[in-house]
Design a protein around this nucleic acid. Structure first.
Length: 313
DNA sequence: AGCCAGGTTTAAT
DNA sequence: ATTAAACATGGC
């Protein structure tokens, strides 16, 4: 598995991710919502603020290649010193270069008639990840039980209130709030953004543990799926769905399957069953043939069924 | 207006 | 070991 190569020329450089990579489709997910801070995707450019050596830096990413020969142009504001370029490489690796072998997944997908069509149609689609597991976990908590639209609206307000900003071309761009800030936030203030009391408490307590280093979320990357899920579910407010969702969407764990997910249950049922609501066990049974890619298979199927209006062949 | 939406915890049986 | 209630907002 080759790590993406990054060529450095001060504030602008290229990344060469593994192929195939459809940047527009993958990063473009963020552009489907009116506002899904801290992520902004407009006119083919992905924009967000990342922390490098604790400093907020605006990063602009755009495709300069193709799905088969991916090449991403990266632009930074303000300038970076050399050691920050290294840190940025790590973050962009995490976010865009989910290091797994797409060809292997696609060859698994051929075993199934529908999945063959889906994977051909969506070739190069990756689940883009947040830069940190902390962010992925907070995202998952905000999305518990309520609709995606509601969660994204609430999360955007959380980011506007607590995230660091970089001004650029007369606009504010945001970083996801860092743990120490959310650790100090008042639960009542967080609730005013639309979080339930419990979710505000969960996020606040989680942030305190991460900020104090009592909890090392990034250390989860070294663990296998099962162990990471066991660790995550020790955290208050984190059940099976939240842990599994964090792995697939935030850690590139393509076999992690949040089988309790209503959207996945709906998608699997429509594609392989009667369309009626099905159980998590049914979901696992149906997707088992795509193991060790069951999570990414579910992601592809959901995207295909619910996110492509112009679906035809 | 009312119900459901990419669940989890606590408190009951 | 299983079941019920409470929870917050946005969309239809």
């Amino acid at each position: 598995m080759n790590a993406p190569r990054i060529t450095d020329s001060r504030t602008n450089f290229f990344i060469f991710p593994e192929s195939p990579f459809d940047f527009e489709r993958s990063a473009g997910i963020h552009g489907r919502f009116e506002k899904s801070l801290p992520d902004v995707y407009e006119n083919g450019v992905y924009k967000r603020v990342l922390h490098l050596a604790e400093n907020p830096v605006l990063v602009l990413v755009t495709s300069k290649g193709t799905t088969e020969k991916p090449r991403l142009g990266v632009e930074i504001h303000p300038h970076l010193i050399a050691q920050d370029v290294k840190a940025l490489r790590r973050l962009l690796d995490t976010m865009f270069a989910a290091s797994f072998d797409f060809d292997k997944f696609y060859s698994f997908a051929k075993k199934d008639r529908l999945m063959r069509i889906v994977s051909r149609k969506l070739r190069g689609l990756r689940p883009v990840s947040p830069p940190t597991i902390f962010e992925a976990l907070v995202i998952a908590i905000t999305e518990q039980q309520i609709s995606l639209n509601a969660a994204i609206a609430i999360r955007s307000r959380l980011v506007e209130k607590y995230g660091d900003t970089v001004e650029f071309e007369g606009r504010s761009f945001y970083a996801f709030p860092i743990p120490s800030v959310l650790a100090k936030a008042k639960v009542n203030r967080m609730m005013a953004l639309g979080l339930s009391r419990n979710k505000a408490l969960y996020i606040n307590e989680l942030s305190k543990k991460v900020a104090s280093k009592e909890l090392d979320l990034e250390g989860l990357r070294k663990m296998d799926d099962e162990t990471a899920i066991a660790e995550l579910t020790k955290i208050k407010g984190v059940g099976a769905w939240t842990a599994e969702y964090t792995l697939i969407r935030g850690m590139g764990r393509v076999n992690s399957l949040p089988a309790d997910d209503l959207g996945i249950q709906h998608a699997i049922s429509q594609a392989y069953c009667t369309g009626q609501r099905i159980s998590s066990n049914e979901v696992r049974r149906v997707l088992n043939k795509f193991s060790p890619f069951s999570g990414i298979a579910a992601f592809y199927l959901m995207y295909y069924l619910f996110w492509i209006p112009e679906r035809a062949t």
